[in-house]
Design a protein around this nucleic acid. Structure first.
Lengths: 232, 232
DNA sequence: TATTTTAGTGAACACTGTTCACTTTTCGAA
DNA sequence: TTCGAAAAGTGAACAGTGTTCACTAAAATA
């Protein structure tokens, strides 16, 4: 019933969507280049030859517009990781690829990724959102990305390559933190890797290096027997 | 020679420093509570009963003032970690404590820590700063914090508890990324740990959990001999 | 065709950081 | 102590921001 309406849109709504997309496209362009501070409603309006107040017929506020940019970016990011996680690679490579894909996609649009994690909730907001359930979280793009990690940990434990003593949810959060941190470190301190004495190294190399260390942290400890294996 | 001058300051400069400190104190208070957006020069001036233009006799710009807030925070952060790294704890506990201290200090002042990593350099800035040498970086607070990690890795390798195949500098960056990521994740998504089905867990517990996984990632691999051991 | 809804505008409001001519205060040397 | 210079502090203004609202023009509907 809804798709009927959206398929045969009236020219009015089609025009409207076109303008809306034009706004988003221009906003995307400006934001990707100059970030949140470089995206001004007035400059944006000038860019698409509209008056500033016209923007408010399509978006309730600048924050709302930004929210849409960030959300659609994070959905693309989730898509990338999801695609990799469904690959037929062997487990180790697949797990590492999830991390490297996440970091690469994040650093490819630094302003987007940083902005997606830029809000610091106040105590009141925190108290209000405390009602959000686990299931509500899993419905969000960030929740889905998180779920991929939880599944990955559980799969690794099932295969006997990850320590069975690890709690999947906590461990997924640990992996996320490590990936998140590398992405933001590369975004905010991009010349940190180049500053070291080995100039031949590229960014991608280090991401793989980091992903490898992260995965090694989840392995079955040396003083524990492997699954079905015996200790020397 | 310098301390002589600072000890017998003329009343003029002492007064000046007092005003300067008052500005910083008010700015610190406002920034800690409401972040960068909540700190306005005009409100700040009103807070200390001065005119907005008076601020500019003490700080060249708002950004310069903010820079001072961030820098002094990061120096405090560095102090904390430095103190812990010089403890007489055994190596494992000390290494973990470095990470947990870093994360706890960071999350204790969320706006400060986030702001300390908020700038995204443009391509031009990046080309300009590329001249900065490794030694220049080590002179900065961030560089010193980084150095602590490099030393820690090398110490662990010397003790035979960290994989000798690891490159200390790259590995230090990996540890930093993991710690950085957890700090920012806790700052920007503070209810992520509580949302999971085990409500008894506190933030501090998870930081330790994460620090443990990070350290495990640096251990000598299971299929490698320990120090002075032989390979099968 | 008449009416109502929608698209779009321009002027205004309340902010912001910043500058600058200007006054007042303070300090050091004659 | 007095005088001139330097420093401290101010108010008004500039350019910019997000946002609102009464208003017009155009399109959709009856």
């Amino acid at each position: 019933m809804d798709s009927d309406y959206t398929l045969e849109q009236t020219p009015a709504t089609r025009r409207r969507n076109k303008v809306r997309e034009a706004i988003l496209a221009a906003a995307e362009r400006m934001f990707a280049k100059e970030g949140e501070s470089g995206l001004s409603i007035r400059r944006l309006a000038e860019e698409i030859d509209y008056s500033p107040s016209a923007i408010y017929k399509y978006f309730g506020s600048k924050e709302e517009l930004l929210e849409e940019l960030k959300d659609s970016f994070f959905e693309r990011l989730l898509e990338q990781v999801d695609r990799v996680s469904a690959t037929s690679m062997n487990f180790h490579d697949r797990a590492r690829a999830c991390v490297t894909t996440y970091v690469s996609t994040a650093t490819a649009r630094p302003h987007h990724y940083a902005a997606a994690f830029s809000s610091i909730p106040t105590r009141e907001e925190l108290a209000a959102r405390r009602q959000l359930s686990w299931d509500d979280f899993l419905a969000t793009p960030k929740g889905q990305a998180f779920k991929i990690l939880v599944d990955l940990v559980e799969e690794g434990q099932g295969l006997g390559v990850f320590d069975p003593a690890l709690e999947p949810v906590k461990t997924a959060k640990s992996i996320w933190a490590s990936s998140h941190g590398l992405a933001l470190l590369m975004i905010h301190m991009p010349l940190l890797p180049d500053v070291q004495p080995c100039p031949t190294q590229t960014d991608g190399d280090f991401v793989a290096y980091h992903a490898d260390i992260v995965m090694r942290g989840l392995a079955v400890p040396a003083d524990l027997p492997h699954k079905n294996g015996t200790r020397s």
